[in-house]
């Protein structure tokens, strides 16, 4: 690597250590931002473009391991280097298991710390380079499964892994998409194909960082969604079933059924503020209430 520029976030409650690291890393052409605790560090991460985090473990308020866990939620690919004291190998192992890029011991060997930071920068650049192409990728997956609900967990897992890899927001997937696919597949298997193991359910998935689209078709006689009693009606609250379709509409941005009732197309956008999404959400809610 020829270009060594980059911004390092140094987190340590010891002002002197921060100053020392700032001087050291600046001499190697790196920009340094200092935070004296974990909360300040998290604030810096949301306002600054950080390439590598170098954090102490023992800090009051939020220790370095907890800080690293918080950073991983915000920026999973950001290399975090943990500074531990001598004789605290167990903490170093814990940090590595939690996703730390590397660790270095205090008091520092200056050559070692510079080497590890530069390696972290290299990894960050590589990961940024790989991410450049993400907006242009669309992945198409297809499953053709027998009508058995036991396959649902694995299918969701595969779709989740691919979505994560392409940068579709994990939180959006786990909180909303997962339940909607679960319900749609369950409907096709149980109500569409009546769990006839000889009948198949076809799942076609388009995955991009911006959007997930699922087309789920069964070989049943057709399923009239409008015939389902409103499960939110006080009269129907004690009914055991009938909530799957409602949940699909609630958690996805767009739902389309074919006329025969054997196919459903579910769409979820990564950015929930798109106009397209708002329009379709309004339409979907309307059609469910009719």
């Amino acid at each position: 690597m020829t270009d060594q520029n980059g911004t390092i976030l140094v987190v340590d409650d010891d002002d002197l250590i921060c100053q020392l690291l700032r001087d050291l890393l600046s001499r190697h052409g790196l920009s340094v931002i200092v935070a004296l605790d974990g909360f300040e560090a998290l604030k810096a991460l949301t306002s600054e473009q950080i390439d590598v985090v170098l954090t102490d473990v023992n800090m009051p308020g939020m220790n370095g391991i907890v800080l690293m866990e918080e950073i991983k939620k915000l920026a999973p690919d950001l290399p975090v280097i943990v500074m531990t004291g001598w004789g605290t190998e167990d903490i170093a192992v814990k940090a590595l298991q939690g996703g730390a890029f590397n660790f270095c011991r205090k008091p520092f060997n200056v050559h070692e710390i510079v080497r590890i930071v530069k390696k972290g920068l290299e990894v960050k650049r590589l990961s940024d380079k790989q991410r450049e192409v993400l907006p242009f990728i669309e992945l198409n997956l297809s499953f053709d499964i027998p009508s058995d609900v036991r396959y649902i967990r694995s299918i969701i897992w595969h779709i989740y892994q691919m979505s994560k890899q392409l940068g579709f927001p994990e939180k959006e997937f786990n909180l909303r998409v997962k339940l909607a696919i679960d319900e749609a597949l369950c409907n096709s298997i149980r109500h569409g194909n009546k769990e006839d193991i000889n009948k198949k359910v076809k799942i076609e998935v388009q995955i991009s960082p911006e959007k997930l689209r699922f087309k789920i078709s069964d070989e049943g006689e057709g399923f009239d969604v409008s015939a389902i009693p409103d499960p939110k009606d006080p009269e129907n609250l004690n009914n055991e079933g009938g909530r799957g379709v409602l949940l699909m509409a609630y958690y996805m941005d767009k739902i389309e059924y074919n006329e025969k009732g054997t196919e459903v197309i579910l769409t979820k956008y990564a950015n929930s503020d798109t106009e397209d999404k708002k329009q379709h959400a309004a339409q979907t809610q309307g059609s469910i209430r009719e």
């Binding site: 609900v149 997962k178 339940l179 679960d182 319900e183 369950c186 004690n238 009914n239 055991e240 079933g241 909530r243 799957g244 949940l247």
Partner: peptide
Amino acid sequence: SYSNSAGLRELIALYK
């Protein structure tokens, strides 16, 4: 951490 409608269905049945 999670329940689908089959889970809700079972809860209502057990409640009854």
